[in-house]
């Protein structure tokens, strides 16, 4: 990392094939980004672990709290419930979104012009903020003033957000409504990278479309499925805006996921210690799940890739 005068030409044969140090040092270019990221990313990550062993009400002084916060959180049946709700929403929304995204992504990867137009429409829900989205659906699903009541269809004018099971279903539906298009686009990219020669070979072998989809497209999409699933699953750990605005964790505690539980414990209940412990649980769950999914894909990294080439 010695700084050399930046303008002295060096014969190409002397220059290293890759790497910058040879020609003026570059390390300082990374410093601004690093300072911001360490201050508001790395330090808080360590901080949240530290605060989980402290007493703090959010305003006053921070005092060491030992294992008090952890004991409180782990002994609270509410935590177990939040974990359950979080994983329930995670699992069901994954199971709903993945087949839909693969189907739509495969369809979008086709050549017709209008599919590009459809892709533009699909992205619209992604542009809305979760808060605006939650506000909208709350109005739309209102049993007295919403769409169902206006159309006078009893089936649609249920108390969607007032009953536990229905509210969970609504959250999953809205999440899918917003994110299926995003994942469909990821799958579109994946499908387009499958070598065309494989399809030509399959066609010569007489494989029909459905056979092609299950024996060729799907196995070839393996890594895309893992990428997309990781984003879905880890992302679902952090659904806060949507649920907070839509139901605030209710009715009762039916949709109180970990992130909402953390907010309510910390910022409404003024118990930052236990809230930090919940945050640590969120981070750890995310890391564990991501690692599991990585393992799932990493074992036979090159297995299905060259099949049939």
């Amino acid at each position: 990392m010695t700084a050399g005068p930046g303008t002295v030409p060096v014969p190409p044969s002397v220059a290293a094939p890759r790497g910058g140090g040879r020609h003026g040092s570059l390390w300082w270019l990374v410093v601004p980004a690093l300072v911001f990221f360490v201050t508001f990313g790395v330090v808080p990550l360590l901080g949240v672990l530290g605060l989980s062993f402290a007493n703090w009400n959010g305003i006053g002084a921070i005092t060491p709290g030992g294992l008090g916060a952890w004991r409180q959180v782990l002994g609270d049946p509410g935590l177990l419930h939040s974990l359950w709700v979080t994983f329930e929403i995670m699992a069901i929304s994954w199971a709903v979104q993945t087949p839909a995204s693969i189907l739509l992504g495969t369809f979008l990867a086709g050549p017709q012009r209008y599919r590009g137009f459809l892709a533009v429409l699909y992205v619209l829900p992604l542009l809305l903020s979760s808060a605006a989205l939650a506000v909208t659906w709350k109005a739309l699903l209102d049993p007295n003033f919403g769409l169902g009541a206006g159309l006078k269809i009893p089936l649609l004018s249920q108390n969607w957000l007032g009953e536990g099971g229905l509210a969970v279903g609504v959250v999953i539906f809205i999440v899918s409504w917003q994110f299926v298009p995003f994942h469909a686009l990821i799958y579109q990219g994946g499908v387009r990278q499958i070598p065309r020669s494989l399809y030509e070979a399959a066609e010569i072998d007489g494989a029909g479309r459905i056979r092609q989809f299950f024996s060729l497209t799907l196995p070839q999409l393996k890594y895309t499925i893992i990428t997309s699933s990781t984003l879905m699953v880890v992302g679902s750990l952090t659904f806060f805006d949507l649920i907070f605005v839509l139901t605030a964790g209710g009715p009762g505690d039916a949709t109180r996921v970990l992130a909402v539980e953390m907010y309510q414990t910390g910022f409404l209940g003024n118990q930052m210690g236990p809230a930090s412990a919940i945050a640590v649980i969120i981070v750890l769950s995310g890391l564990v799940i991501a690692q599991l999914l990585r393992r799932l894909g990493g074992r036979d990294a090159s297995a299905s890739q060259l099949e049939g080439m």
Partner: peptide, 20 residues
């Protein structure tokens, strides 16, 4: 370090961010 950052959700570190 930046790659690690992809794994840090804002929600999970919001309490220390608030403190800072």
């Amino acid at each position: 370090l930046f790659l690690l950052g992809l794994a840090i959700p804002l929600q999970a570190v919001i309490i220390p961010v608030y403190l800072i």
